[in-house]
């Protein structure tokens, strides 16, 4: 990996961390609802730099993020780690199929993030299929909506980056 790419990854990780912390300040009607804005950065990294870079950024975000929030190795940490890994793996797999654009990738990421978290809750904390079955549809539905939001953000950013690089090439 080139030195310049390392700097870029560090910058992207910092962006992901900032979004990860910032979204906790946004009030939501349901306390556990999160927008998952950090996935915007993960997805852009995945598209521009590939699987290893996206995995690195996700791990940096969940580890340092949980240390900043004081939840390192606690339940929220386990949930975001499992969710993050599931989402990166799923988005990478969806990228290989080559039929999805940023919106589809974002939706895949959101879906598997939530599935991973539900699985983690079931395996690690609560073996109560009933309550998970009641909560799962709502979580996955809200996840689809936030997935659209993040997908649109990725589309905007990618278009902007394309315009910027076009400008550089033309001058």
């Amino acid at each position: 990996m080139q030195q310049r790419d390392k700097y870029r990854l560090a910058l992207l990780a910092a962006c992901a961390l900032a979004l990860h912390g910032f979204e906790r300040l946004i009030p939501t009607p349901i306390p556990w609802l999160r927008f998952g804005f950090a996935n915007i950065i993960t997805l852009i990294t995945l598209i521009l730099y590939g699987f290893n870079a996206a995995l690195t950024i996700t791990l940096i975000r969940v580890i340092i993020g949980s240390m900043l929030m004081g939840t390192f190795l606690g339940p929220p940490f386990i949930m975001s780690t499992v969710g993050g890994l599931f989402s990166v793996a799923a988005m990478w797999a969806a990228l290989q199929v080559r039929v999805f654009g940023p919106l589809g990738l974002s939706l895949t990421g959101a879906l598997f993030h939530n599935l991973g978290q539900l699985l983690a809750v079931y395996v690690v904390f609560i073996q109560n299929l009933r309550s998970i079955l009641i909560l799962a549809p709502v979580i996955l539905f809200v996840g689809t909506l936030t997935g659209v939001l993040n997908g649109l953000a990725v589309i905007f950013i990618m278009e902007h980056l394309k315009k910027m690089s076009d400008n550089v090439q033309n001058t």
Partner: peptide
Amino acid sequence: RVTTLFDRILLVVLL
């Protein structure tokens, strides 16, 4: 225009 057909199918199916 920038969304693919599969993006739209996935969105509708999930919703």
